[in-house]
Nucleic acid binder design. Structure first.
Lengths: 248, 248
DNA sequence: AGGCTTGCTTGACAGGTGTCAATGCGAATC
DNA sequence: GATTCGCATTGACACCTGTCAAGCAAGCCT
């Protein structure tokens, strides 16, 4: 299926003294290299639900990786329309858009009480010069974000409401499963409006489509609590419209 | 206005023996560093209209910068829906999505007879370790692609057909102007269907919307020949829905 | 506990865009 | 120069989603 997720979750390292590193730092670093990384990564910072990690236009200094909790990023138009550009869970990296102009290009907001690791970019950049695999890892992370954005474009440009929502639910499910959580029973961290903002739909359409899925017996909806009763039906719904890649 | 363009066009260097470098390589390289770059960049390759530069699933080895001509990139779903993810003109870079999986994530197709410079990625990567400003430049290019993708998401998720098309025309106009071409009189290199594929619209809607703009006296349409008669009206149309950034 | 706020659901309706179809125009081919 | 094919334009109509509105449930505050 399409990967609408952030680009970090599949890489793991053996070092476990920081949960972040399990998820987001490259394999293949020796003891000395790990120590250098340790010296650069800043202690985590806590954010309450609704707090901004950064805002559009803020000076760019660091990337941020979610340690616990959830964030969304979004861009806004002058007349106030909001487009959520991503939802981020543990291990996922935010702020890559800030490098180009030395200014953050979107807002990042905590969806619940959360904390993040700060990665000062210029120091990561110079460390990358000493540690080629680290440099390569950052290129891969940025590239992965671009790939994710492309599949979001496919979703926004070509899919119908039911397909978008099915793809969204399956994407969440897969990312949660890869973190060891239940794939078919989870809590939505975002409102209907925020889901709609990400999927290019109005909140009423999100609500109606969830109800429709429930009426068909494919899912169970209890406010933010979602159970996937027939994930295979959702998969069938998105099979046709999902990206045809080398693996398909 | 939103920047829907590819991320290279604004950087220029004084070296002029290769038109590519005027547009896409970083400033601040000394003579020796330029020589190292020369040794890595491959001679240009020619492509006829309709030819593929690369396809989804092809092994990733190189980035490609347009020297002359025009390309589009697009992703496709299994059931054949196409989403154009970008149009590329001279100096703009394609293939950044391939880094993440060592496999190209989209198709790149020449819109007319074109030629490109090939940048073998692993050699650029190692060169980046010796030339920090080059490394930083590549991070900026990738970040800029992410920023561009975000504004496309805003377009696809929130704008109406007229707004999308106005934003598209103004974006083309601005990129052409930055290359020394007329801003208000140009030839579309892509079909109505390809424009629609990029904007998340059907070709009939693109055609109708162009006709509407023409009836209002804002533009003149003669097949692929477009003249912007009242670009300020188009700008007014997209003013509200364009991204609110630090500069606005 | 009561009232308020916020978010969600559901319905009726409207409007924008997609779909289908016919026609026209231009470029390429023979 | 005639024919064919691809692309574009335009119209009629349908349908999906947005808009507006009402009602409901849960959580929060006093």
């Amino acid at each position: 299926m399409n990967d609408l997720s952030s680009p970090l979750h599949s890489l793991k390292v053996t070092c476990t003294n920081c949960s972040l590193r399990e998820l987001c730092l490259p394999i293949g670093l020796n003891r000395d290299e790990m120590a250098q990384l340790d010296a650069v990564i800043r202690q985590s910072r806590r954010f309450k639900r609704g707090e901004y990690l950064f805002r559009t236009g803020d000076g760019f200094r660091s990337l941020y990786a979610v340690r616990t909790g959830y964030f969304k990023t979004c861009v806004s138009s002058r007349d106030g329309r909001e487009q959520a550009t991503g939802f981020y869970m543990s291990g996922e990296l935010m702020g890559l858009d800030g490098i180009s102009a030395n200014t953050h290009g979107c807002d990042a907001i905590a969806l619940e009480d959360s904390d993040v690791c700060e990665l000062p970019f210029s120091r990561m950049e110079s460390l990358g010069r000493d540690i080629p695999s680290l440099q390569h890892h950052f290129f891969r992370l940025m590239s992965r974000e671009i790939v994710r954005d492309q599949s979001v474009m496919l979703l926004l440009g070509n899919m119908k409401a039911e397909e978008r929502l099915a793809a969204f639910l399956l994407n969440l499910s897969q990312r949660l499963a890869s973190r060891g959580f239940a794939a078919n029973d989870f809590i939505l961290r975002m409102s209907r409006e925020e889901i709609g903002s990400f999927l290019g739909l109005k909140l009423e359409t999100v609500s109606r489509t969830l109800s429709k899925f429930q009426q068909q017996g494919w899912i169970r909806v209890d406010h933010k609590h979602i159970q996937l009763l027939r994930p295979e039906e959702l998969k069938a719904l998105v099979a046709g419209c999902s990206q045809a890649n080398s693996a398909g």
